[in-house]
Amino acid sequence: MNNNYHKILGLRELTSSTFVLEIERRDMKFEPGQHILLGRAGDIHHREYSIYSGVEDKALEVLVKEVEDGEVSKTLKHLKPGDEVEVQGPLGFFTLEDEFLQTGNRFLFIASGTGISPFHSMVRSFPNLNYKVVHGIRHASDAYEKSDYASIRYVACTSRDDQGDFNGRLTSFLQQNEVEPDTHCFLCGNFEMIRDAMNVLEEKGIPQDHLHAEVYF
């Protein structure tokens, strides 16, 4: 048996193109914010996915957006409980270092689309975290499992409908709202969002060593 093979436990459809894959965790230890390399067992194609679940959760979960012509996401969508996937990892350094986790530190998590995955893991893993999530999505229905965040800590910025907490791009939300200069800002998503949001935050006086980013690809 391949040591990296894990069984699928289930699949939660969140939207027509986005789902959470629940994977047998076995003894995998990880830090919130890390990712895994994932593919169907025996397949030659693998992709990086941030871990969505918390460190205490029984299953290992990833949030997957089905990509048109995607070599991995389409395959994952069709997996059934009992099927096997290959998991390598955990990998990556987009984590909350111990020094950040000291009492009183505030965190701003800025995500576009499925870039919210590492922050979901952080919030589930550290219940006492003083955080706010700013989530850039097209439609309010893309606010994946937003009940997992305290309602005052989650802002859905919707660019294609007016059903979100803020109607417009997340960069506009950032421009219109105060960010305390000592906030640790973590950004995850597509590069254009990260670039624009970092520019806004720098203009607001957030020091560079308080900006942490991971581009989604």
């Binding site: 590069f191 990260i194 670039r195 970092m198 560079q208 060593d209 980013a213 991971e214 581009v215 690809f217």
Partner: peptide, 15 residues
């Protein structure tokens, strides 16, 4: 450039 380093996923800054 720090933005390019993010785009390249280099995990370090110029500083």
């Amino acid at each position: 450039d720090d933005e390019m380093l993010v785009h390249m996923n280099r995990k370090h800054t110029v500083e």
